[in-house]
Simulated assay, not measured.
Amino acid sequence: MKIEVFDLKNAQLRYVPDFFNSEEANFYFERLQQEIPWKQDKIKLFGKEHFQPRLSSFFAEQDVNYAYSGLELKPKDFSEEILQIKKSVEKFSRLTFNSCLANLYRDGQDSMGWHSDNEKELGENPVIASVSYGAERIFHLKNKIDKNLKEKISLAHGSLLLMEGATQHNWKHQLPKTKKNIGPRLNLTFRKIY
């Protein structure tokens, strides 16, 4: 298993492009697209409501709630497949997670804007474990203070990206739109919510 470590200022990133082999990745990609109850939520940005440019669904242990951008997420129980993926991520990272935000980017026009996962319920230095299936997309990072510090990572089918340490305090990240004619990408982000 190949592990890439990104040496960024005040951030710790580990990327495993082949965390799941192609057969496993294909299985989870197809199964999760079909089984997850996808919906398009509205979020508040600068006082106005907008539909998110992607579909999503939230899974967590009982009594776990999560909110961002004026959106309160009510959790569904983990599916068998999401639990299997979570256990694999936990074994590798040696951490435990109690929630999973699933996002479906239907094509290159679906996106995620600049943000940090730094909500207070995630604790001091949250670890975000991001698993990707489907079309490869470019993930952007930029330092909050030094705008010249930037990084791009191409997130492959079946890959795992771990954002650790003080990454969420010091960096923002996004998944921008692309004009390329690409298929859907499914992303699972695992978090520990307190």
Results as ranks from 00 to 15, higher is better:
M1E: 08
V5C: 12
D7W: 10
L8Q: 12
N10F: 15
A11K: 04
R14T: 14
R14A: 15
Y15H: 10
D18P: 00
S22T: 15
A25L: 09
F27W: 11
Y28H: 01
F29Q: 00
E30G: 09
Q34P: 02
K39W: 04
D41Y: 04
K42A: 11
K42D: 07
K42N: 09
I43Q: 00
F46I: 00
F46Q: 02
F51S: 14
F58N: 08
F58C: 10
F58T: 10
E61H: 09
D63W: 07
D63Q: 14
D63I: 05
N65I: 09
Y66M: 06
S69G: 12
S69K: 14
G70H: 12
G70Y: 10
L71R: 12
P75T: 09
K76I: 07
F78D: 06
F78P: 05
S79K: 07
S79E: 08
S79R: 07
E80D: 14
E80S: 15
E81K: 04
I82K: 10
L83Y: 12
Q84N: 13
K86V: 08
V89T: 01
F92L: 06
F92T: 00
F92W: 04
F92G: 00
R94Y: 04
F97L: 11
F97S: 08
N98M: 11
C100W: 06
A102Q: 03
N103C: 05
N103M: 08
L104D: 07
L104W: 05
Y105F: 14
Y105H: 13
R106H: 13
G108I: 06
Q109P: 07
Q109V: 04
Q109G: 08
D110H: 09
W114E: 13
W114G: 14
S116Y: 07
N118T: 11
E119F: 07
K120N: 13
E124Q: 14
N125W: 06
A129N: 01
V131I: 11
R137H: 03
I138Q: 13
L141C: 11
I145E: 13
D146E: 14
D146P: 06
K147H: 14
K150M: 10
K152W: 10
A156Q: 15
A156G: 02
S159Q: 00
S159T: 02
L161R: 00
L162C: 05
L162F: 04
L162Q: 04
E164T: 04
E164W: 01
G165E: 02
A166S: 15
A166G: 10
T167Y: 03
T167G: 04
Q168H: 09
N170L: 05
N170H: 15
K172F: 12
K172M: 12
K172S: 12
L175D: 01
P176N: 02
K177S: 05
K179F: 04
K180I: 03
K180W: 01
K180L: 14
N181G: 03
I182P: 03
L186S: 06
F190Y: 05
R191F: 00
